[in-house]
Simulated scan of single mutants.
Amino acid sequence: MSKLHLVFGGRVSDPRTLDFVTPEALDVVGIFPDYKLAEEAWRAAAQKSVDDAEMRYVVVHLHRLLEPDA
């Protein structure tokens, strides 16, 4: 299985947490086949909102969720 990574972000209630205010309005950047591409996409998305402390983007390791024992 590929090591898939999801990049998404949105407005959080507290910049120190991942408590998204409106989960239905998350900005899904995409799913990427490796961490390097996911990190590049994450950096590009995060850079667009660098002046907004309540916007947060994350990389989720989908492969770890799909095959936790691997």
Score class of each variant (00 low, 15 high):
I31N: 01
V50A: 15
A41R: 00
A25C: 04
G9K: 07
G9C: 01
V60R: 12
V28T: 14
W42A: 09
L26V: 13
W42H: 14
D19A: 12
L62Q: 08
I31S: 02
P15L: 04
V28Q: 08
V50L: 10
G30Q: 10
E40F: 04
F32R: 02
A70Y: 12
V21R: 11
D51S: 14
F8W: 12
E67T: 09
A41Y: 00
Y35D: 01
P33L: 07
R43Q: 14
L62S: 08
R56Y: 03
P33Q: 10
I31C: 06
A41N: 06
H5C: 13
V50Y: 03
V60Y: 04
G30S: 11
L65C: 03
S49C: 05
L65V: 07
R43V: 09
Y57F: 15
F20Y: 15
H5E: 09
E39M: 10
P68T: 08
H5F: 15
V60L: 10
Y35R: 08
S49E: 15
A45Q: 03
V28I: 15
D19G: 00
G10T: 00
R43Y: 03
L26G: 05
V7I: 05
L66F: 12
F8E: 13
G10C: 02
E24T: 14
P68L: 09
R64T: 09
L6D: 06
V29M: 04
E39W: 11
P33Y: 02
A53R: 12
R11F: 08
D27V: 01
S13Q: 11
S2L: 04
A45N: 06
E67S: 09
S13P: 00
Y35V: 10
R43A: 11
S49A: 10
A41W: 00
L4T: 08
P68Y: 11
R16E: 13
R56H: 11
A45V: 09
G9P: 00
D69F: 09
V60C: 04
G9A: 02
F20T: 06
D27C: 05
P15Y: 01
R56G: 04
L66K: 06
D69C: 02
V58N: 04
Q47E: 14
V7R: 12
A38C: 07
A46C: 02
L62D: 11
E67F: 09
D14K: 07
E54C: 04
S49Q: 13
W42K: 05
V29D: 07
A41Q: 06
P23L: 01
V58S: 09
A25F: 00
L66R: 13
R11T: 14
W42L: 15
E40N: 10
L18Q: 06
L18F: 13
R16Q: 12
T17S: 15
M1I: 03
P15M: 08
V7S: 11
E24F: 06
S2D: 12
D19K: 13
H63K: 01
K36N: 10
D51F: 03
E40C: 03
F8H: 15
R64A: 09
L4Q: 11
S13E: 14
L26A: 06
G10M: 02
A25H: 07
E24I: 00
A45C: 08
K3Q: 10
P68D: 08
D34I: 10
L66G: 00
A25T: 10
V50D: 03
H63P: 02
A25K: 15
